[in-house]
Write a protein that binds this DNA or RNA. Structure first.
Lengths: 108, 108
DNA sequence: ATTATTTTTGACAGATTATGTCAATAGGAA
DNA sequence: TTCCTATTGACATAATCTGTCAAAAATAAT
């Protein structure tokens, strides 16, 4: 998975794009997900939070990479935490170091 | 600010270290913050969430870099979002790209 | 144009989570 | 023990999240 191709869209925007490419109305997708149309509409526009489960179901419905969607999903959550913070970029760097450290020392 | 020196401690652990270095009991710091002792105790042990305001006050009380503490504070929030996620590191990379992109195109 | 379909919006109640207060308990030092 | 500090859990309240619904707006179809 390359990073460049997916750096700008939010998970919601990506999901809307996928739905439109599949020419599916909110109504049908919401039915497949067994959630209300209003909620799906808000999820696509970032007004309601997505869940990992919904993201995975949508990857299956749209036949799109679940990993790509999950990265966008996590990225959105991260961006939400550091929004408008001057030190956001620095915090991301420290977090990366920490993740690498944890991965290197993970329990067996 | 270097990254290496602050990659492993959580914000709570760092705050406890600072308090002990200053030889201040929870009671006194809590009084300065105007919060309950129990809450401060839990904040230092990661059982309660810190707020940006409290972090800044503590930086002032301990005469320690507010930027350093804020980075740890944001880092903890980021780590919380990606905990146990295999794609966490990838999400962090994408988030970094996005932050850089937003910074380059920020409105005036 | 008007009808049908899709999408958005807002209000609402219930569930879940966060927060502050307090008291009891535990731990350590004098 | 006594004193000071720190931890834990229970509780009420506040804030946030979640699903449901209906009305309104936007878009497409006939």
């Amino acid at each position: 998975m390359s990073i460049g191709i997916m750096s700008t869209k939010t998970i919601g925007e990506k999901l809307r794009q996928l739905r439109e490419e599949n020419k599916l109305p909110l109504r049908k997708v919401a039915a497949l997900l067994d959630i209300d149309v209003a909620i799906l509409s808000k999820m696509e526009r970032g007004e309601r939070k997505l869940t990992k489960k919904v993201v995975l179901k949508l990857a299956n419905i749209y036949k799109y990479s679940a990993d790509n969607l999950l990265v966008l999903f996590l990225c959105d959550k991260i961006m939400y935490e550091i929004q408008d913070e001057d030190l956001g970029e620095k915090a991301l760097e420290v977090a990366e170091k920490r993740v690498k450290y944890l991965k290197a020392n993970k329990k067996k």
